[in-house]
């Protein structure tokens, strides 16, 4: 089972990455998974280049393949200007629009204040709904103050439990197939 973690934190060390690792560890406690972490910071230039050149560079292509091939995803972004960061959105803008179809996704965000916690539901959840991912009910938001308060571990555990429950029991990797031409032609005639 492959669990891919996408972290859009920018500083080193980063509280976004810290939250991502906590979530991944909580999922790994429940079900055996191979974890791969993708730091978008390292891909920032290649992401910008894909906007202008139309194709991904080598490292970005590898990250896109990892996300596409994952059995489940954890995505974590810092809140910038009342939403996900531009880098976080850009990564998903240049990803193939079908890459996340049917994929279980746990959404999480970090911010300086708890006043932005609804960013999970007004920004991240619609984005992943649009991409036809299956978003788990519990999103995890960690404000600076949460790292020294009660409640965060419980939310992490609940979200991890929900994601673990959605991961497929057996691995089934879908190969991109081709629709036979006769079917394509017939579909046009029938409708």
């Amino acid at each position: 089972m492959k669990l891919v973690v996408v972290s859009a934190g920018l500083s080193v060390p980063s509280s976004t990455r810290l939250l991502a690792d906590r979530l991944a560890a909580a999922v790994a406690d429940r079900t055996p998974v191979d974890i791969e972490v993708i730091e978008l910071r390292d891909l920032a230039v290649e992401i910008a280049h894909q906007f202008t050149s139309g194709f991904p560079g080598k490292a970005l292509a590898a990250a896109q393949d990892a996300v596409t091939g994952a059995d489940g995803l954890i995505v974590v972004t810092p809140v910038f200007s009342a939403s996900y960061s531009g880098l976080f959105k850009s990564f998903f803008d240049v990803l193939d629009k079908d890459a996340l179809t049917g994929k279980p996704v746990l959404i999480a965000a970090t911010g300086g204040t708890a006043r932005h916690s609804l960013v999970l539901d007004h920004a991240l959840r619609p984005l992943f709904s649009y991409l036809r991912a299956v978003v788990v009910p519990t999103g995890v938001y960690a404000a600076s103050e949460d790292w020294g308060a009660e409640g965060l571990p419980e939310r992490i555990e609940r979200a991890a439990q929900e994601l673990a429950a959605l991961l497929p029991k057996t691995e089934h990797r879908k190969e991109p197939g081709v629709v036979p031409f006769a079917e394509q032609l017939a579909a046009l005639r029938a409708s």
């Binding site: 050149s53 629709v179 031409f181 006769a182 394509q184």
Partner: peptide
């Protein structure tokens, strides 16, 4: 892939403009 499939179905040529 639908267009590669179309070219194959008819036995026509397939040109991949690989320049980018």
């Amino acid at each position: 892939p639908e267009i590669a499939e179309q070219a194959a179905y008819y036995g026509d040529g397939f040109f991949h403009n690989n320049i980018f």
